[in-house]
Design a protein around this nucleic acid. Structure first.
Lengths: 214, 214, 214, 214
DNA sequence: TATGAATGAGGCTTCATTCAT
DNA sequence: CATGAATGAAGCCTCATTCAT
């Protein structure tokens, strides 16, 4: 007896929906995103979205969780322990720089969630878990650097993470207004290379300097 | 007998609408903002929004223009020429830091416009005009610093503006997800003071350093 | 003392408004017409419309009255009494044909009023007055024709008027759907000439024939 | 326990909406028609209008298409080939006369579309298709008549169709202004019968006559 | 006389979601 | 599992008209 030839791959369907949802939310934000559009970007029916994710909010949170999981998973493969403090710091910066430049979708999802005052993220244990060890990773690098003398200024690892994040993230998140106003293209290869170097060395020289302007 | 209090104050009405619009758009983004809500935040009828600004888009652009005008106008009062290069740079950084921290609305409006791919800004001549001289202001500071030896590294003024902007802006724009994930409060007075110092000195030490990690 | 140089020509203003109103109502119908648009087509302010005509309905009725007045006034200058019955009939037909073809605005206003079930016309004494003597004019022609033998079939003058009207009016009122469906152009000079002849001779031969198909 | 009676009958729903739409558009024209009203004339929710027809324009076009389809479908059942040329012509005239008198809705819909300069019709292939063979039908009648001598005057079939249409259509489309002005009732049975006869014989005598007034 | 400012009511349409099969 | 049909609530915007000067 021939069964009806419907696709029976729940995981595949979920994955496809999530992929479409991330693209749509990243593009239009939470209010601007359209469930219909996400349905259309998918081969399955819109109804499945409700079946698997409950509602728009549930889908959005799932998209956010996936986005964070991916970057942090990659980050954990960097093998920073094998490098000198200085090299490790640079590798971490480079990774952040490259990943965010390559994954505008991720950056926009985070921007979007900040427009939402992070209210949806608060409901997700997963996101906190998944983000738990970046600070530790940076702390290890800094400590190593203080010991071997590569870094002279003691800075909280959160602050170093903040600087890396701010400089790499803003380049992508604010590229549209920045480029429009200053008539440049932040995504252009030469600007990109120059900025990557600049960010590296701004943070490094900060950690090596001592004399302050208060 | 109390006469009906129908005011005839076009400028006042426009101003009131714009104020409400900025708050609403900053809070909810373009799609999330509600014309009804903007009307309700106003003493005049919702209908006047259309009378003066045509439609939601027109109102949004006007809000954006006003937001940019205000920060740039203040910026022009800084009298940086009277200061040493180092002091001038720090005053510019401090101004940006303080203004953006105090005017979350401005920061969110810019974030919002980036979520929109800066598409509405492109229709506004005014915004480009109003933003035209920040780069020159920074260039003057840098040139002075190179001459008197306070700065040793030659950097394009756009890049310096980028660093200032990125570090000050991100603190405000991404405070919600950052604070949520790392359990800190970027708006807290001590963190704020520490960060202001850090940003100043990261940029200063970058402009003084030469040795690079490539 | 120099008085303010405002236009003080009430009749001119009224005329200008009416002209604009006829065009707008003829183009868009009653519901489709926009008071704003009529205002814009005029050099005076929209407010004057209310000043002179009370409201949209009043303006519409005035436009209708003017349209009827004009055609009937012209009709009265035809001097049909000087012609033979046959020639007089043809001149009346030609006049109707030419006037309606040249004054699409008139035809469309009448169509519009029929879409309104003639409800606005009912409030206007003037329209009935102004239309009172066409039937008499036709009756005079027919009677002359019966006497001199040019016409053999006795037909009520209302019916003859009906045929003239129907054939001339429909050509203009329905030209858009007719042309679209049959891929022709009712307004083209050759079609127009052929039709004018046809209408004349259809009515003439009807009035001369006797043998019926019942 | 009575279950909620939510019907699932797409074809029925569409049909019901179309029926209501035709009535509303015929009564008030395109701009005057109210989607709300059409919804209210229906047992289903107003929302379904957009589900099935997209928007007001789509609904209007569908209504127009249906109206044309119906009259042309009936017309094709007339079996004119079995009749003599003279009888066939009369049957076609009678059909048009009776149908338009009985279906004021159809007539008003066409009037409405002419007020719209046939702009919506232009987007509909269906309407052109459905109207394609009336001219052929008339041509066949005329050719037969020329052969057997019932008709002596050669007239383009489009022109004959034009006369039939004009005389039958105008009676219905312009009945309101005509009746109002001349104090008669075009829909009254005796007038109606007299006119039907008149139209038949005007067209017949035209096709039999030769002597022209140029 | 003339006019810019102001408005309530209502129009079309969209949206996330649920129902019935 | 899967889906087309159905919907209430609410969004943006337009309209004729009136107010205050």
């Amino acid at each position: 007896m021939v069964k009806s030839v419907r696709k029976l791959d729940p995981e595949g369907t979920k994955r496809e929906i999530l992929r479409a949802a991330r693209a749509e939310f990243a593009e239009k934000g939470f209010s601007g995103a359209r469930i219909d559009e996400i349905g259309a970007r998918t081969k399955t029916a819109k109804r499945m979205i409700y079946y698997y994710f409950g509602n728009k909010e549930g889908l959005y949170i799932a998209a956010l969780e996936q986005a964070y999981s991916e970057i942090r998973a990659l980050e954990r493969t960097l093998e920073l322990d094998d490098l000198s403090a200085d090299d490790a710091l640079c590798r971490m910066i480079d990774f952040t720089f490259d990943y965010e430049q390559a994954n505008v979708e991720f950056v926009r999802l985070i921007s979007c969630e900040n427009m939402n005052y992070a209210r949806y993220m608060k409901d997700s244990k997963k996101i906190r878990e998944v983000n738990s060890n970046i600070i530790e990773a940076i702390e290890k690098i800094l400590d190593r650097g203080y010991l071997d003398g590569s870094f002279t200024r003691h800075a909280p690892p959160e602050d170093v993470h903040f600087m890396i994040s701010a400089l790499c993230f803003y380049r992508v998140s604010n590229q549209y207004t920045f480029s429009e106003i200053f008539g440049c293209d932040l995504a252009a290869p030469d600007t990109s290379a120059r900025h990557k170097n600049m960010i590296r060395n701004a943070i490094r020289s900060y950690l090596r300097s001592t004399e302050d302007h208060d």
